[in-house]
């Protein structure tokens, strides 16, 4: 048996097909080697994110209950009201303003709540004042945020009111690309008395409706 006995004969059609992709077959990008240590690097990042998620407030992942990690509640009458909040409410609708104003005026002592949100390790320089105003149609969530970077082009922020580590309701989304000059006005269909924990997460556009688990701000009414 010689070296040519099992010679595979070229197939002209196959040769023509491959020749048609000759330029791409000759390109280094087509043959680029995967980064060294890729598996270890990806798994390390995933483990780190899992660890962060386990210590953060999410509906599908456990929340850390460290009181020192949660900013104190500030009573409504003690807060410094910013005029921009009412400008923002005006943008949300005149009728809504009337309802909110009337309701909050009537109940401001026991319904309107202001609390400070503290930045997590994902946004250590960020802080926020959240004002929760219950109205007959839902809870208005007003956020004055500082030090939070704008969301990336494929990201957005989402605010949540939570009842427990497992149960939370979204209050709405924003991207903060305007730099935070105005109060962010969101609405929630649940009461802060039942959902006393407020968090803000950074979400991926292609990440689905669930919380990403990446909490950037948090505060609690229970502290």
């Amino acid at each position: 048996m010689t070296e040519f006995d099992d010679l595979e004969q070229p197939d002209p059609a196959a040769e023509a097909t491959v020749a048609g992709f000759g330029a791409l077959l000759a390109d280094e990008a087509t043959w680029a080697e995967a980064p060294t240590d890729l598996v270890d690097d990806v798994l390390a990042q995933i483990r780190a994110e899992r660890h962060d998620a386990e210590s953060a407030a999410t509906p599908d992942r456990p929340i850390a209950n460290d009181p020192s990690d949660v900013a104190p509640v500030v009573e409504l009458h003690r807060r410094r009201r910013r005029s921009s909040r009412w400008v923002a409410l005006a943008a949300a609708g005149v009728v809504v303003i009337a309802g909110v104003f009337a309701f909050s005026q009537r109940t401001s002592d026991d319904k309107g709540i202001v609390l400070e949100l503290a930045g997590t390790e994902l946004a250590a320089d960020a802080s926020a004042i959240a004002e929760l105003v219950e109205t007959p149609d839902g809870t208005v969530v007003l956020l004055d945020i500082e030090g939070l970077p704008p969301a990336g082009p494929e990201e957005y922020y989402e605010a949540w009111l939570r009842q427990s580590p497992e149960v939370g309701v979204s209050a709405g989304t924003f991207h903060f690309r305007g730099g935070g000059g105005d109060t962010i006005v969101l609405w929630s269909g649940v009461s802060p008395s039942d959902f006393p924990l407020v968090t803000v997460t950074i979400q991926d556009l292609d990440g689905g409706a669930m919380s990403s688990g990446r909490v950037v701000l948090r505060g609690s009414l229970d502290e």
């Binding site: 099992d6 595979e8 197939d11 040769e15």
Partner: peptide, 25 residues
């Protein structure tokens, strides 16, 4: 290796590639 072996491997590889890339033609 022998030149004939190179030719055989090349021919077989091109047949496999052509089959796998037919949808791109």
């Amino acid at each position: 290796i022998a030149v004939g072996t190179v030719k055989s491997r090349s021919a077989r590889a091109h047949k496999r590639l052509a089959a796998a890339l037919r949808h791109l033609e």
